[in-house]
Design a protein around this nucleic acid. Structure first.
Length: 477
DNA sequence: AAATGTGTCAACCGCGCGCTC
DNA sequence: CGAGCGCGCGGTTGACACATT
């Protein structure tokens, strides 16, 4: 951070704009200005008020610290639940989350999430609580196809995308059927199918060891690992398709029972009988950018089609290093399974081989859904990356559209009974307002989307049981 | 007590979008 | 149609406090 003295301040004209922490005097000036002129036109603030701050800085200061009704202090359990729920559905849309949390700022929520995410990952816990995962699967399973995968996707949207369709499906009819197979798989599998993935895969393993489903990244001899699946590497971030997944660089397997770990490889290891994952991704290393201009590295996966992984822990290093671990893996696997089935069917029916060379090549180079956006972009002339969206088809043009719908239906998404009025006497947890500028919401602000949870919900989300709050502090190694 | 690690908070930066001209 | 501008969003960084070794 730039020191208060204005070091590094940028000049506009003759004015050297100040950076760094705001002083009380500056706050006062800004407050007075906004009182007189109202919000907006931030660049005029500097001109008219004498503040040596750029408009951006003024807006930020106002929004995050000076505007009325800001709530300070720790998040309440309800707020935490809301954040987690929202994040599971809309990803890193901090502003949208903030809109649902009166008095909270996007910056606050973002900081909260990143901190807790880090803590949780260090402790080897899944980003989302298990019950939420299951709820999401159930929810998505009932959702109509609605593909829209944002780089900041929640796993819910990923599931949607997987279950719906893909550009390949839209544009390549000869792939329709095989893609539909994976689509059907994703559509028809229940949440428990996924959660029971190990047994399913083991069955597969028992009947056909050559099934590519067993390729690296998903399975080893211990069962199924979804650690590399975005379904469990939730929280995809980044404008340039940076997925919040750890591609893994070491082969050290963590001790799932130990909160103190030294490796940084795993994510959510569903295969463990405990049902609790290990996720030790370091925040600093979890954002692996996938080059939108070249998906070869992403898809380069001969093994995907080639054969089964020998599995075992020793395989883990290869797994981690060799696959993207993204949803594509899942789709690849499911598609491959179905293709094997198709192949068998066709062998029986005398049809042409479902794994024709060109289909295979297309599969490799384009694949489905998430993998195909460069090709899709070329075909459609629509820059997916421009919109930070992948896997969209034309009819479902844009995350924004979805988000707008989400805005309207956010509450429904959250499965909250209804917006609940929080009475004036409501105590927002133990949070104390320590801000010089902020104040609790006034009594005339009576509606908030913070819900009064049901008793059942309280069980999971009370202070002590909050998924974050009882997280042990990370011990130094 | 010093060094190191971690958490929290605040602020900056880059990018993209929408509007206006 | 494109440039310029204002603005908002999301990612990142730095400072500081606190905890741990």
């Amino acid at each position: 951070m730039v020191s208060q003295g204005g070091r590094g301040g940028e000049g506009v004209g003759h004015m050297v704009l100040k950076k760094g922490p705001w002083t009380a005097a500056e706050d006062t000036v800004l407050l007075e200005y906004v009182k007189r002129q109202g919000e907006g036109n931030w660049n005029a603030v500097q001109k008219n008020s004498g503040l040596q701050r750029c408009g951006k800085s003024c807006r930020l200061r106002w929004a995050n610290h000076l505007r009325p009704f800001l709530k300070k202090g720790p998040f309440t359990p309800d707020e935490e639940k809301t954040i987690i729920d929202l994040h599971s559905k809309i990803g890193n849309k901090w502003a949208r989350m903030a809109a649902q949390l009166p008095g909270r700022t996007d910056n606050e929520i973002k900081n909260y999430w990143n901190t807790r995410l880090k803590r949780r990952q260090r402790a080897g816990l899944p980003v989302y609580p298990m019950d939420l995962l299951q709820q999401q699967y159930s929810h998505q399973h009932q959702q109509p196809p609605n593909i829209s995968v944002s780089p900041s996707s929640s796993f819910a949207s990923i599931i949607s995308a997987a279950a719906a369709s893909s550009p390949s499906i839209s544009h390549q009819n000869h792939h329709r059927r095989q893609n539909q197979n994976s689509v059907n798989f994703m559509k028809n599998c229940t949440p428990l199918d996924l959660l029971n993935y190990p047994s399913y895969c083991n069955n597969m393993n028992g009947t056909n060891s050559n099934i590519p489903f067993l390729s690296r990244g998903l399975i080893n001899n211990h069962g199924l690992s979804l650690r590399n699946s975005p379904l469990f590497n939730q929280s995809f971030t980044g404008k340039s398709l940076s997925f919040d997944v750890n591609l893994g660089h070491n082969s050290t397997r963590p001790d799932p029972l130990s909160a103190s770990t030294t490796n940084t490889t795993t994510s959510f290891d569903l295969m463990r009988s405990s049902g609790m994952g290990t996720n030790n991704n370091e925040l600093s290393s979890i954002q692996n950018t996938i080059q939108t201009s070249n998906n070869s590295g992403y898809m380069e996966s001969d093994d995907v089609m080639g054969g089964a992984s020998s599995g075992g822990d020793e395989e883990y290093g290869k797994i981690a290093g060799g696959t993207s671990g993204l949803l594509g893996d899942l789709l690849q696997e499911s598609q491959a399974i179905k293709r094997c089935e198709d192949s068998e069917d066709k062998d029986a029916n005398g049809e042409e081989d479902g794994l024709s060379k060109d289909a295979f090549e297309d599969f490799k180079s384009c694949n489905i859904g998430l993998m195909s956006y460069p090709k899709q972009e070329a075909q459609s002339g629509v820059s997916m990356s421009d919109h930070s969206n992948i896997g969209m088809n034309h009819e479902q043009s844009g995350v924004e559209e979805e988000m707008n719908i989400m805005d309207d239906d956010l509450l429904r998404l959250l499965d909250y009974p209804s917006p609940v009025c929080i009475p004036d006497w409501h105590d927002f947890g133990s949070s104390t307002n320590t801000s010089n500028y902020s104040s609790r919401e006034p009594s005339n602000v009576t509606t908030t989307y913070l819900c009064n949870t049901t008793k059942d919900e309280d069980v999971d989300w009370e202070e002590d049981n909050c998924c974050w709050n009882n997280m042990p502090r990370v011990l130094n190694s």
